[in-house]
Write a protein that binds this DNA or RNA. Structure first.
Length: 418
RNA sequence: GGUGGCGUGUCCGAGCGGCCGAAGGAGCACGCCUCGAAAGCGUGUGACGGUGCAAGCCGUCCGUGGGUUCAAAUCCCACCGCCACCGCCA
């Protein structure tokens, strides 16, 4: 939710943000109107309530013969209050709906336009060339007996896989490495629930445009999270925090229906319904949000560098931002089998948008203030494994293990076919 | 799943249907005392919304949502959560 005070002060800024996203600026004017309607309703109801309180107090002190008349008056006012409160409730609900429809303000530096209008900020490492025919990650994984998608499909359906032998060990190594780095950088490690209540899902904005992506357990009214951003953001919902920043690194399984991606990335484990992830999540003061965003980005870049994966960093265009994000950086690693860049990690600055929705504030000298929230992927495991297998493959099908990962694999320097 | 108990401000904790935004503590802040501190004493100390240039004024909030009533922290209902015991279970 955007700040309504800001909206009243500078509606044109919000309209401009809408245009940058390719969204409808009329939503802004609808919100302004709803805001005004609510204030009118609140004022009317407040005045009636004040009058009712007064008369109500007079009931006690009334003499027996004035009493019936006062009671009569009180009853009439009570009815009027009830009516005014109904009007207020309707106005408040209308405001809420209009409020939810307006996405976060886009940061001024964000490139305008759609999905393809991103700006490349940097490239780290060189695009590799191979003196042999490269295999894709699934082919490598099958040679090494690291991935079994056929049995994944037999047991659970398409887009499910077993990680076997070295694949399973690779996952544990990556998770441990990601956690170790997060801890060293001051993040509190967390094992987060993967099932959450509707409020957590709503509060983080995942039941809006992306609700078709989300698994729901209808019998229990619980949702399977697509990222531990959800439990980590909801963790402090409704709280006033004494001290910021708070930095968490959450590990959880992630579940995605991939409803709109039929036929896309169907081979291997690049796009699966279930994977594990280590996610960084920061709560900071609003004025520190940009610096924190850089910090998260640096963590992500260092992690990928240490895995010796070539990647580029892009500034995602306004039209491709999620509704909560004011700015988003993606790190895209080189996928040799397809000779293209593939999104591997991502970090979003949600400013105070998500926190306002979840009621997360912190104490300042000037009273409680809405916090800012940011999230960033440390390691999305399945996709990282896919890239390690592809990028570090050798002609004989064996795979080089990056130095930084070796301590987490018992010193193993290469993975070879069994 | 069953039975019983409980949810009040930063925390503990009291609260007869109206005089309760709410006693009393603790904590915290400031002041006095002190060479300094502790102790002691005094004062202050919630959030949100509306309105106003402002001081202020008005309204809402006692887990959440409904209901009864002129009037609800207080009575009724539902839900959520916590605790204890029993059953089941990794």
């Amino acid at each position: 939710m955007i700040d309504l005070k800001l909206l009243r002060d500078d509606p044109e800024r919000v309209r401009a943000s809408q245009r940058a996203r390719g969204d409808d600026p009329a939503l802004v004017d609808a919100l302004l109107a709803a805001d005004e309607a609510r204030r009118a309703a609140v004022t009317a109801a407040d005045n009636l309530r004040a009058a009712q309180k007064e008369v109500s107090a007079a009931v006690r002190s009334a003499t027996p013969d004035e009493r019936p008349a006062v009671l009569e008056k009180a009853k009439a006012l009570a009815a009027a209050v009830k009516e005014a409160e109904a009007v207020q409730a309707v106005a408040e609900e209308a405001l809420r709906a209009a409020h939810l429809a307006v996405p976060n303000l886009v940061h001024p530096a964000v490139p305008p336009g759609g999905e393809s209008d991103y700006v490349v900020l940097s490239q780290t490492g060189e695009v590799p060339s191979y003196p042999f025919d490269v295999r894709d990650h699934l082919a490598v994984g099958e040679i090494l007996k690291a991935i079994d998608t056929e049995r994944g499909a037999k047991v659970s359906g398409s887009r499910f896989a077993f990680l076997t032998g070295p694949g399973a060990l690779l996952e544990l190594a990556l998770v441990n490495m990601a956690m170790a780095r997060a801890v060293a950088a001051g993040f509190i490690p967390m094992i987060a629930p993967a099932l959450v209540r509707p409020e957590a899902m709503e509060g983080t904005g995942f039941l809006g445009a992306h609700s078709a992506e989300v698994y729901r357990l209808a019998d229990d009214d619980l949702y399977l999270v697509g990222t531990s951003e959800v439990p980590l953001a909801a963790y402090h919902s409704g709280e006033v925090l004494d001290d910021l920043p708070r930095r968490y690194a959450g590990f959880s399984s992630c579940f995605r229906r991939e409803a709109g991606s039929h036929g896309k990335d169907t081979r291997g484990i690049i796009r699966v319904h279930q994977f594990d992830k280590v996610e960084m999540f920061s709560y900071v003061a609003l004025e520190d949000a940009e610096a924190e965003h850089e910090r998260l980005l640096e963590q992500e870049k260092a992690f990928l560098s240490d895995l010796e994966l070539p990647f580029r960093t892009i500034d995602v265009a306004a039209g491709d931002l999620g509704s909560s994000a004011s700015r988003k950086f993606d790190n895209e690693a080189w996928l040799p089998s397809q000779e293209r860049w593939l999104e591997l990690t991502s970090t979003s600055n949600c400013t105070d948008f998500q926190a306002r929705r979840l009621g997360i504030r912190h104490r300042t000298a000037g009273g409680p203030q809405v916090a800012a929230t940011l999230n960033g992927t440390m390691c999305a495991v399945s996709r990282t494994i896919a890239l390690l297998l592809e990028v570090h493959q050798r002609a004989d099908g064996s795979v080089h293990v990056p130095k930084a990962l070796r301590p987490f694999l018992g010193g193993l320097e290469e993975i070879t076919a069994p």
